[in-house]
């Protein structure tokens, strides 16, 4: 009788197999072929694609660049999101208005936002450089110099996703019990000490959750780069997913891009697991020690 329960799992299981397991296994198979626009189809190329990947410095640079981008933007999103959440957590004037206002960037379509930001950053037609000029800072080569282009991608990412952090952290703050804060005041903790010793440690679990969700999302950064810089100038803002897209969808090197994707998946799975463990140790258990 208990065996019949698996029958009821079947519909979900079939969907799972169709959308996850099959593509994954197929990708593994494809990565061992040299399927491209000249030789389409599943041949047997052994580990040739992986050997090629090993030598492909553009891929490893893109991976390093993505890591840098993801870590720095998620960190900034966390700091800013926490700050904004603290700002509207307690009773302040027009609290509701600000809560909604801070969410606007997240509610707009990423690609549309990137197009708008590209206009803002435009060196001769955009509104940003005249403002900087007026402030005496001077016009900057926002999208034509590697460092600036990287900064521009960072700014857009932070701007777009800080609201998400804000939302999760505000929900976390609002769910905290109020009593420990009363106790802290009587126990001689001022506002800063209360934040460090009470608010921050009690937010440990929700912080880890929020950071991980954002880290998973940030490890796939693609559309911002695609719209804003197309990976340029040169390859200076190219992320892994954007590079894989170029190899697979533009150059049609299906076998090679499968090998790149698979390696990328494994690296990200391992990295995110390690990050998750480190965060839990640091922010949840560390706070309870």
């Amino acid at each position: 009788m208990y065996r019949q329960k698996y029958i009821f799992l079947l519909p979900g299981l079939l969907v799972l197999i169709a959308v996850i397991l099959f593509p994954l296994i197929f990708t593994i198979r494809v990565s061992f072929s040299s399927w491209d626009v000249y030789n389409p189809g599943l041949n047997n190329a052994g580990g040739a694609m992986y050997a090629r990947m090993w030598e492909d410095s553009r891929y490893w640079e893109a991976l390093w660049r993505l890591s840098l981008l993801a870590v720095s933007t998620v960190l900034m999103q966390y700091v800013l999101g926490f700050g904004l959440a603290l700002l509207v957590w307690r009773e302040i004037a027009a609290r509701r208005f600000f809560r909604v206002l801070f969410l606007v960037p997240m509610m707009t379509t990423p690609v549309v936002m990137s197009v708008i930001w590209r206009t803002i950053f435009h060196e001769s037609l955009g509104p940003l450089n005249p403002i900087l000029d007026a402030l005496g800072i001077g016009a900057q080569p926002w999208l034509s110099q590697p460092g600036f282009a990287f900064a521009a991608v960072m700014i857009v990412e932070i701007w777009q996703w800080t609201p998400f952090m804000f939302l999760l952290l505000l929900a976390g703050l609002l769910s905290l019990p109020s009593e420990p804060f009363l106790a802290a005041r009587v126990d001689g903790a001022g506002p800063i000490r209360t934040f460090l010793s009470v608010t921050f440690p009690m937010m440990g679990a929700i912080s880890v959750g929020a950071i991980l969700i954002r880290a998973i999302e940030a490890s796939k950064i693609m559309e911002t780069v695609y719209v804003l810089t197309s990976g340029g100038p040169g390859t200076s803002t190219e992320t892994v997913s954007y590079y894989i897209y170029i190899r697979g969808m533009r150059d049609f090197q299906i076998g090679y891009s499968a090998a790149l994707s698979l390696t990328y998946l494994i690296i990200m799975a391992v990295a995110l697991t390690l990050i998750a463990k480190a965060l839990v140790r640091l922010m949840v258990r560390g706070a309870q020690a």
Binding site: P177, E179, P180, L182, A183, A184, R185, V186, D187, G188, A189, G190, R193, V198, P201, M202, G204, A287, Q288, A289
Partner: peptide, 22 residues
């Protein structure tokens, strides 16, 4: 004086502790 600068200790009806500390 703000509360944290007053040399006061207080016990309330409902037990108030720090849930994240031992």
């Amino acid at each position: 004086l703000p509360p944290w600068k007053r040399p006061v200790a207080m016990v309330t009806q409902q037990s108030i502790n720090y849930p994240h500390l031992s």
